[in-house]
C-alpha cells in the first residue's frame, strides 16, 4: 500500500516538474501570459462562435473586449478561465492548458461574471472562508476597497442590493491579486459614483504582473482605462486586436463643426450634435488625439477589412 502511494506521489512529482518546466520555458521565450491557438468553439455542432481564433494576451495591462451581442465576448472569457473547453485548438496560461482547471492555474485566475451568487453570510466571514485559496490576497486592499464603496463588512450579504453585491464581489476580486482578472460587464448595476470608484480601483490596482480583461458594452465606463483593445467581429474573429498606443498612432479622432472642411484622410464620419465625429488616418503632421471608443467600435463594425489593413500597416 505504502509502495503504491509512493509510486503515485513519484508520478505526480514528475508531472508537476514537467508542467513547471514547460511554464519556465514559455516564460523565458516570451511574456505571453495567455495564448489562444487555432481555437474553434461552438455550443452547437456546426455553429461556430469562434473559428480558428488566434489571440495573445501579454502580461500586464488592461484589455478591453468589445463586440456586438452574440459574438462571443463572454464565451471567450469562459474559454480563457477554463469554464469551457475548446472543440479544437487550445487556450494556455503560461504554457498550461486552462481547461485542465489545475489549482495552480485557478489560483491565478479570477472571474467576475455578469451574474453571480453570494452566500447569506457577512463579507467578513466570506473573506475568511475564501481568501486562503488565493496566495496573494490582501486584506488591507479589501478593506480599502470596501470602505471606498461604502460597504460594511459586518452586514449579511443577503441584505445587499444587486449593486452592493457587485461592489462587494469586485472588491474581493481585486483584493485577490490574481495574475488574470476577467470582468464580464463589470459596471452593470453600478451607480454613477460606483462606476467612478470602479475605474479608480482598476487603475490603482494595476501593476506589471497583472492582466485585466474587461468585456463590456458600456464602453464609456472603461474608455480611459484600456491599454489594449480587442473588437470581435463575425465568426468571433478580432477585427481589432491592437494596443491603444498603436491605434492612437494610426488614427485621428476629431469632431468637426458643420460646414468645416473635412479631412482628406477621413475614413469614417458620423453626424453628432453640432457637427460630425470623424475618424481619419493620422499623418505625421496631425496631432495625436484621444481615442473615441464609440467611433472606433462603429468603424470596426462598418469597415472591418479597412481598419484591419490600416492597423496592420507599419
Amino acid at each position: 500500500m505504502t509502495d503504491m502511494y509512493d509510486f503515485f506521489n513519484f508520478i505526480l512529482q514528475i508531472r508537476n516538474f514537467v508542467i513547471h518546466l514547460q511554464c519556465s520555458i514559455t516564460l523565458i521565450h516570451n511574456n505571453n501570459m495567455i495564448e489562444i491557438k487555432n481555437l474553434s468553439f461552438g455550443y452547437l455542432k456546426g455553429h461556430w462562435v469562434f473559428n480558428d481564433l488566434n489571440l495573445t494576451v501579454e502580461q500586464g495591462g488592461i484589455y478591453g473586449l468589445l463586440g456586438p451581442n452574440g459574438q462571443g465576448k463572454s464565451t471567450l472569457l469562459y474559454l480563457i478561465s477554463g469554464l469551457l473547453r475548446p472543440n479544437e485548438g487550445e487556450v494556455t496560461m503560461n504554457g498550461t492548458s486552462t481547461g485542465l482547471r489545475l489549482p495552480s492555474i485557478l489560483s491565478k485566475i479570477f472571474i467576475v461574471p455578469e451574474e453571480f451568487t453570494l452566500p447569506a453570510i457577512t463579507m467578513k466571514e466570506y473573506c475568511q472562508l475564501n481568501a486562503p485559496f488565493y496566495p496573494k490576497f490582501s486584506f488591507d486592499e479589501l478593506s480599502e476597497n470596501l470602505k471606498a464603496f461604502g460597504l460594511d463588512t459586518d452586514i449579511n450579504m443577503a441584505s445587499f442590493s444587486m449593486g452592493q453585491k457587485k461592489k462587494a464581489f469586485l472588491s474581493f476580486a481585486l483584493a485577490c491579486n490574481t495574475e488574470i482578472l476577467l470582468l464580464d460587464e463589470p459596471t452593470n448595476g453600478l451607480d454613477v459614483t460606483g462606476k467612478a470608484d470602479f475605474r479608480r480601483f482598476i487603475a490603482s490596482h494595476m501593476n506589471d504582473n497583472r492582466t485585466i480583461i474587461i468585456s463590456t458594452h458600456q464602453i464609456h465606463d472603461v474608455e480611459k482605462l484600456l491599454d489594449h483593445i480587442i473588437i470581435l467581429g463575425k465568426n468571433g474573429l478580432p477585427v481589432i486586436d491592437s494596443p491603444v498606443s498603436l491605434i492612437a498612432n494610426k488614427l485621428c479622432f476629431e469632431m468637426i463643426a458643420n460646414g468645416a472642411t473635412p479631412s482628406q484622410n477621413e475614413i469614417f464620419s458620423k453626424p453628432t450634435f453640432g457637427g460630425n465625429n470623424i475618424v481619419s488616418i493620422r499623418t505625421d503632421e496631425s496631432p495625436e488625439t484621444e481615442i473615441n471608443l464609440e467611433m472606433l467600435y462603429e468603424l470596426a463594425a462598418e469597415k472591418p477589412s479597412e481598419i484591419k489593413q490600416i492597423l496592420l500597416n507599419n
Binding site: N16, P103, S104, S107, E125, L129, F133, P135
Partner: peptide
C-alpha cells in the same frame, strides 16, 4: 498559503472546502 496552489490532492484543501461549504 504556498501549499494551496499545489496540483495534487491535498487533505488540508479538502478540509478548507468542506468548512467553506458548510459555513456558507
Amino acid at each position: 498559503r504556498n501549499n494551496i496552489t499545489q496540483d495534487k490532492f491535498l487533505w488540508s484543501r479538502l478540509w478548507m472546502h468542506i468548512k467553506r461549504e458548510i459555513l456558507s
